[in-house]
Design a binder for these strands. Structure first.
Lengths: 335, 335
DNA sequence: ACTTTCGATGAAAGCGCTATCATAAAAGGC
DNA sequence: GCCTTTTATGATAGCGCTTTCATCGAAAGT
């Protein structure tokens, strides 16, 4: 049964009548031991309720079997989903996930990275390519393996998605429907290269079509549904209101639809609304949201395997760009 | 600038002309040092780019400054929110968060707990009170500090919410409006004491009112909006369809509203729908959802402080029950 | 039969830090 | 001024594991 003091490696060794080294091998490289010894050690371990001390193991071996992730926030469908698939992919390989959030602050990201490095993580998952000099320096000197998500950068492995193309796709769709005056609700652009890229994509598509996207038609909001609603309200209050609104994230588009409907405007009859992300809700709302599908779960999964490849020495700063796709539903129509 | 090999404590000590012990103190208990020594050590540390090795520190001190959390899934508004507030409260006190998910499997929870204990976490946050014998044994022998969330249990500190009362509140509200035939969509009841309690609360309110909740009117579904839709479809296909539907989580209620509307049924005119959770979306959907507000963010925050109190030796298995509240909006009306 | 190789185990030196104990200098106490 | 505290620092023994390196039979090669 359970011993009083926590069992250590030597206790198991004594109990099994072998050396500590043998027990260590039994736990980490069972293949090296004679079958008989192995079972004897395992029996003792079980009887004593022995659990390897990960701390000591990490110190002695130099590998912590722990991966760190720094995301803007955990409280977002998008990042939660990425983390869920990232975490379960890691768990399958015996790695644990240490998470930190920076809530859109460059300095907080630096601090989080510093803490994670101090914890001796074997690898790090970061969001986006924009970061402070200080963070970059920490990363470089620590030589920890890193995988970037959403947006990549030279010298880093990355799993990205073409945010600019995403913006372009929705914009082109709307332009194709005949919209000339299109508004956009985006997240605060500081320290958010994903939103900047999406905005850039929209702008690019419009310019190509000879249209303008004046500042008045771009509303920066906090990344919530309420933000979307507020942003849409601002755009609808304009003297020359847009005939279509693009949400930099689906949440914005959903808030936008609500605002329009609350004002008695029919969507898409009187206002077309589209988003980017394709979160679960978008498919089933009324009207179903036209959006661009971002393979969130896949990002986490591929990020995990990319990072593990880097750690194991295979993997040469691989950069995977995941495909995105315009999903036309019912929230958009000709003006 | 950055040295080639990673700087260790002794390097800083040598550089500053002090003993390793002094450097250790400079990092951990600056108050003990003469100001002059302290600044000298700090300068050396900065110059060498020294970062404390958390692994070694943990081994030597016996505290890892790491907290583990095992949740059903990260990919859920609810748990994501709890984790976000939990994590940021911990970060403020210098603790890091190690997360694991069990995806509704008792065995996976055990495995996750085992891994976290092996990692030497100083504390553990768990969801609900139901777990395997094996998990309980691990917890007991490890003597790690634990805080339970949502549902509590004797011998554990906990931050809970009265799930049964939540179910009762919505049911009473509906009964008060005159509904006699009420259906419920719940999550799979195995290994989900939160859903079981909510169902029990609904049942209790109905019985008190002399009403029945036959099995046919309870639909178990996976915890997604699509599940809610499917559950509602099943209830609406019944020969004697209910006049009101309760979602065991808001997501179910939202899916339910969608299903009803898709069938051309007006909510709340022809069907009342209510949920439990009060997620962001519920307030702004059309019609706005009647639900019970669960203070999710607060759960995480209080769980953090409760756990830290346990760890520091203050805190005697405190049990905090957070208040919930019926929020009547537009999705419910008299039948 | 006699090395040579291999397979299985043991001995022991760290991994980088903290914490205890000892010590030396400075500060009080009367 | 001599003794007792206090304050600041040093010396050093671990924390519990992994990992060479060494060892010792047994299997294999010739």
């Amino acid at each position: 049964m359970a011993s009083h003091r926590k069992a250590r490696l030597v206790d198991v060794a004594r109990d099994a009548g072998v050396s500590p080294a043998t027990v260590s091998r039994a736990m980490a490289q069972p293949g090296l031991l004679a079958l008989e010894t192995l079972t004897r050690v395992r029996d003792s371990a079980r009887r004593l309720g022995y659990l390897t001390d990960g701390t000591a193991r990490a110190l002695a071996s130099g590998r912590s079997m722990t991966i760190g992730a720094v995301v803007p926030t955990l409280d977002s469908t998008i990042f939660a989903r990425v983390l869920q698939s990232f975490q379960s992919a890691l768990a399958r390989e015996g790695y644990q996930l240490l998470v930190a959030s920076h809530e859109m602050s460059l300095a907080a990201e630096t601090e989080a990275v510093r803490m994670l490095l101090a914890r001796g993580v074997d690898g790090l998952m970061l969001v986006g390519a924009e970061r402070s000099q200080e963070t970059v320096r920490l990363l470089a000197t620590s030589e920890v393996r890193v995988v970037l998500t959403w947006v990549g950068a030279p010298d880093f492995a990355a799993v990205t998605v073409d945010n600019e193309a995403a913006g372009r796709l929705v914009a082109e769709h709307l332009i194709g429907l005949g919209h000339r005056r299109i508004g956009m609700i985006v997240g605060h652009l500081a320290f958010n290269d994903r939103q900047r890229a999406r905005l850039a994509g929209v702008r690019q598509a419009m310019e190509r079509a000879g249209l303008a996207l004046p500042d008045a038609l771009v509303s920066e909001q906090v990344l919530t549904m309420a933000g979307g609603r507020a942003g849409c309200a601002r755009l609808l209050d304009l003297a020359e209101r847009p005939t279509a609104v693009i949400g930099g994230i689906d949440l914005f588009a959903i808030g936008g639809v609500q605002e329009a409907q609350a004002r008695g405007l029919s969507v898409p009859g009187e206002l077309s609304v589209a988003g980017i992300d394709d979160i679960e809700f978008s498919a089933s709302m009324m009207p179903a949201l036209t959006t661009v599908r971002i393979p969130t779960a896949q990002i986490g999964q591929v990020a995990a395997s990319t990072l593990l490849a880097e750690i194991s020495g295979q993997g040469r700063l691989e950069h995977t760009r995941l495909p995105i796709e315009l999903v036309v539903r019912r929230s958009t129509a000709a003006p």
